[in-house]
Design a protein around this nucleic acid. Structure first.
Lengths: 120, 120
DNA sequence: CAGCATCCCAGAGGATACTG
DNA sequence: CAGTATCCTCTGGGATGCTG
């Protein structure tokens, strides 16, 4: 098994993995990163692709992802306005470990659903 | 880059990775799995090790982790009661992809914190 | 020891209306 | 088009007290 360390001395929550989980572990961030991995995408295009995200939340999450360096925001001075979001190098690179987790999720999905239904 | 697919036809949220993120993406689950990876652990021992988790939440998360098949719960019929939690095969196996994410988090932690402080 | 029951709160996220 | 601004709901999680 892969050796894992999350705890540190100061407190269980103050560790790198929590910063990452807090970011991509929410309802939408990971999805946004994946959509952007297909191609640079405009605001409303992103909203349409995801479908059921509210505009407020999309704005908020995009800001946070940008602030932590996962994505870039490029505004073109046109009318109507045009803003394009894209992955940074860091945003691209996190998709590798995330991809492993996704692979695992797909392989074990049936088992998880099976377990869950047993005790319903 | 690792090729990633999360979206499906029916809706963005109905996909395996969301089941996993919803489970280990909360405040405590991942931490519990990691603690258990060290050794099988009793309820209050788990609580002490983690430190600042409330009893209510620990109970709840343990139940959910058990229900989805990540951990086992073994109650010994003694007085005082003794209940030991341990990882299942599935619980062990998820720590591999999770470990990759943790590695990534550690390598990129400085950059994330740096990015964050730039725009504070 | 290993919980259950209850009360409480902050924040995530949705809906809607408005703007440069 | 790409957002801001409000209002509202719902739930994750904490605090406290009690029990077999």
């Amino acid at each position: 098994m892969h050796k894992v360390t999350v705890l540190d001395k100061k407190g269980a929550l103050d560790c790198p993995i929590r910063d990452v989980i807090n970011r991509i572990g929410d309802k939408w961030s990971l999805l946004i990163l994946v959509v952007l991995s297909e191609q640079p995408t405009r605001f409303n295009e992103l909203k349409r692709t995801i479908g059921d995200i509210s505009q407020k939340v999309l704005t908020k999450v995009l800001k946070e992802l940008e602030q932590e360096g996962y994505i870039t925001r490029t505004a073109y001075d046109e009318s109507p306005p045009k803003v394009v979001y894209d992955l940074t190098e860091m945003g691209i690179s996190v998709l590798t470990p995330v991809g492993h987790l996704i692979d695992w999720a797909e392989k074990n999905h049936a088992m998880i659903k099976g377990n869950r239904s047993k005790t319903d």
